[in-house]
Nucleic acid binder design. Sequence first.
DNA 1: GGCCAGGACACCA
DNA 2: TGGTGTCATGGC
Length: 206
Amino acid sequence: MKHRRSLFEIYETLLAEYGPQEWWPARTRAEMMIGAILTQNTSWANVEKALLNLRKHNALKFRALDVLPAGQIAELIRPAGYFNQKAGYLQAFTEMLRDYDGSIDRLFRLDTPALRKQLLAVKGVGPETADSMLLYAARRPVFVVDAYTRRLLAHFGFKKESEDRYDRIAALFTAALPADVQLYNEYHALIVRWGKNHPKQRKKSS
DNA sequence: GGCCAGGACACCA
DNA sequence: TGGTGTCATGGC
């Protein structure tokens, strides 16, 4: 059987192919975290429209979102889809932030396990969203797993592993890589980049 | 016209 | 704990 590339070798391959991605595409930590919620099961192009709306209304920060009614938030983020749900998620997040005086800095004083637990306690923040925030906003060495990650694993011969549960896939990567924020940052970004070049096989219409 | 996109949750057994 | 339905827009 042909030698299967290691997860680090796959990283090197992707980096050589696509180059540094310089993620996350956001100006501020708040924008990053809001984008993380908006992009759930949604194309980034649609998220960008929603982010633009929020920016135009000076609502691309939690203190602003905190005083907006859900209906108004929903209208602004409409292009991102699931807008009613996500408006509620954003509000749940701002409510949690109140416990930290609305300060991301204060929230981020928690150590990584406590911070992850706090993020996951917010309705609408699941494992991928929480880990994205941990890695790209709080800059903790946490590996992010998403649909592209599973697809990549399957593509490179990790078929069985690709069907495993979230935490086990994350462990697969963290066991194979040094716990380095910049490495995790780049790797996940490259996986997404790769995923956009390898779209899920569309069903043929006869 | 249907499928898909950088998920998460409620509800059920 | 595992499976299924729901949420919704915009591009292709």
